[in-house]
Design a protein around this nucleic acid. Structure first.
Length: 158
DNA sequence: GCCAACGTTGGC
DNA sequence: GCCAACGTTGGC
């Protein structure tokens, strides 16, 4: 029996990789995550088919830009082994990889970004620990509960 | 571009 | 194991 579908938030700077980029390529290895907590969520928590909210960070209108889904189990991020890569990690080896990723597949782009500004209006309902509204949180991959997922989707504008 | 908040590193 | 220094994130 397959485990129940889970939900996740994944942040990306649209200048580097946006929801439009994902729409164009269809599926993308989510490389470059170099934070242990985020890695653990991908490596230990994600299952193929899980729902993903694609968040645009560090841009004019930060917010959720669309939906995606987890399209692979976790496997080593090859950029950690590549000395020419910005994400190269000299302490990682193929025998003992340090960083993992999953493939992410495009589902749909929202007509309008669900802006962080709007999401903040519901910070209480989303809960204290929710990483988007928690003060100072920089986590780029984190779980979303079913209730949070529904609440956030309810903020989508036609 | 600024800067507060955070995670990681490394000397001790 | 502490903690200062450093680099990064990301909203504004």
């Amino acid at each position: 029996m397959s485990p129940r579908k889970r939900y996740w938030m994944m942040k990306s700077e649209p200048d580097a990789f946006s929801i439009d980029d994902l729409a164009r390529v269809g599926t993308e290895p989510w490389n470059g995550v170099r934070n242990y907590q985020a890695r653990n969520f991908m490596r230990d928590g994600m299952q193929v088919g899980d729902g993903v909210m694609f968040y645009h960070s560090n841009c004019k209108v930060p917010g959720i830009a669309g939906l995606a889904r987890v399209a692979s189990h976790a496997y080593p991020d090859s950029t950690q082994f590549d000395p020419k890569s910005h994400y190269f990690d000299p302490k990682a080896t193929p025998e003992a990889p340090r960083w993992f990723l999953v493939d992410v597949a495009f589902e749909r782009k929202f007509k309008q970004v669900i802006a962080l500004e709007d999401i903040r209006q519901h910070a209480d309902a989303l809960g204290e620990g929710f990483a988007l509204t928690a003060r100072g949180s920089r986590l780029s991959v984190f779980p979303v509960t079913t209730a949070q997922w529904k609440l956030l989707l309810g903020l989508e504008k036609p």
